[in-house]
């Protein structure tokens, strides 16, 4: 680990691709590009060489805010023990048709 991290030649972008109409954009990977316009062009060349997409989003990686990975147990705790949020919790009505 260097004391002072070197500046990258070009910043990092995260790429999201919509594979067809009716589906959402899904994270495909990342790439380096000097600006948004070239990031979209590079993303087309890199992630849609076999018609994998009809639409591309690029987002500067530095602009993404993530949940704290070290706090994930506490952070995602609340749904636990709340099985009643799922249909499968309700077993008495299991055999009733169309329910």
């Amino acid at each position: 680990m260097t004391a002072e991290p070197r500046r990258e030649t070009w910043p990092l972008w995260e790429v999201f691709v919509r594979s067809s109409r009716g589906l959402s954009h899904v994270h495909a990977g990342s790439l380096h590009a000097p600006d948004a316009e070239l990031a979209v062009r590079n993303a087309r060349d890199l992630y849609t060489r076999r018609s994998e997409g009809v639409s591309i989003w690029v987002v500067p990686a530095a602009a993404i805010t993530a949940s704290d990975p070290d706090a994930k147990d506490a952070w995602f705790e609340s749904p636990r023990g709340k099985d009643f949020r799922h249909a499968t919790y309700y077993t008495a009505s299991q055999a009733v048709p169309h329910l």
């Binding site: 680990m1 991290p5 990258e8 990092l12 990977g29 990342s30 380096h32 890199l46």
Partner: peptide, 15 residues
């Protein structure tokens, strides 16, 4: 490029 990106997630820069 896919592999460089994947390796970068470990804290090593492309350069």
């Amino acid at each position: 490029l896919y592999l460089y990106s994947a390796a970068e997630t470990l804290g090593t820069t492309r350069d």
